[in-house]
Amino acid sequence: MKNYILSVILAIAALLSGCKPEIKEIGPEYAAGEGIYGSWIISKVSQVDLNQPIPETRDISSFFASDESRKMIIRFDKENNAYSIVQPGLLPRVLGTGGTWAYDVMPYPTAISFYTSNGDTISSPLANMPRENDVHFGFNIERSDSCGEVYLRYVYSFNRVQ
């Protein structure tokens, strides 16, 4: 009887040890900001009304949800640090149709600058530093009126286009 119990215990132990996951070597960390390359589609947009003493925020995502053609798609290329607006959607065309881009500081960027093909420079604080395995990305764009006052902030959130 004792031998039988011992055999059962040994068999269970052998089974358990067989299920032990094999630990693979952990590779290098994904670098901050390196995951920006590729295409991104807008997933959420908020407006922050800076014209009010206490700024008010409203989610305007529902404006896009009903129609994919209303969503902006932006593509970042590694070559020449170019970006292009694949689909402008229904958002202010502040980024033009394309241009070049650059992070402010490396290796931990906090803002991205867009240099549009028509000569404008737009500096946008980043919501995150996208890594290669990130599927979400975002940045803010502030708008000034012709009187020079910053009156509105757009908070853009994107999903990676697979």
Partner: peptide
Amino acid sequence: PPTVAKPVVYCFPTLALQDDI
């Protein structure tokens, strides 16, 4: 703060360029 009560018909944002939502 200025009166925060909004009129019955109001806009958001309170100021916008013509290409803004």
